Simulated assay, not measured.
Amino acid sequence: MATTVTLDGELDLLTTARTTGLLAAAALTTSDIVVDLRSVTFMDATGLGPLVRTACQMGRRGGRVTLVVTDPWLERVLRLARLTDLFTVVRQCGDADTYCPRHA
């Protein structure tokens, strides 16, 4: 069963440490992580860093990171950064029932 991490607000330099901590804690307990980004209002390159590091770490262990993204702008950021192949990206938790049971 996956662990769900819900992030909100801005993902940038000021929130990188908090985001890194939340994702690192989740990575200790599961092989699959769902990161719910539906309440994220802004994300820059530094905000992507913890997500990328976690996805790489999980991938080396045979796990995966699924991102729940409903904002077209955020989807565009992921696409422009060429990160859509690194993550499983879904529009709603219902698209990933087995990965997001707490939000289904």
Rank of each mutant, 00 (worst) to 15 (best):
I33D: 15
A2I: 03
A55Y: 04
G94H: 09
T41G: 11
D71W: 06
L83T: 15
R61M: 13
M43D: 01
D97S: 12
C93N: 07
F87Y: 01
H103Y: 07
T54A: 01
F87A: 00
A17H: 02
G94K: 10
D36H: 11
R79A: 14
S39T: 10
V40R: 10
D97Q: 10
T30H: 00
W73Y: 03
T88R: 07
Y99V: 06
G21R: 04
C93D: 05
D8F: 09
R82L: 10
E75D: 13
F87M: 01
L74Y: 01
D95A: 11
F87L: 00
T84Y: 11
R91H: 12
T84W: 11
Q57D: 11
D8I: 00
L78K: 06
R79Q: 14
G94P: 01
V90I: 10
V5R: 03
D32M: 01
T66K: 04
V5N: 07
V52H: 02
R53D: 00
A27I: 06
R60A: 10
L7T: 06
L28Q: 14
R82Q: 13
R76A: 05
T41M: 03
G94E: 05
L86H: 02
G21Q: 02
V40M: 08
G21S: 06
R38T: 10
G62C: 00
A45F: 06
L80P: 08
T4N: 08
T15E: 06
L11G: 11
V65E: 12
T4D: 13
L37Q: 00
T6E: 08
T98M: 10
R64W: 15
V77K: 04
L11C: 11
G59T: 15
R53Y: 01
T29A: 09
T16G: 04
Y99F: 11
D36Q: 08
R18D: 15
R64M: 14
Q57L: 08
G47C: 03
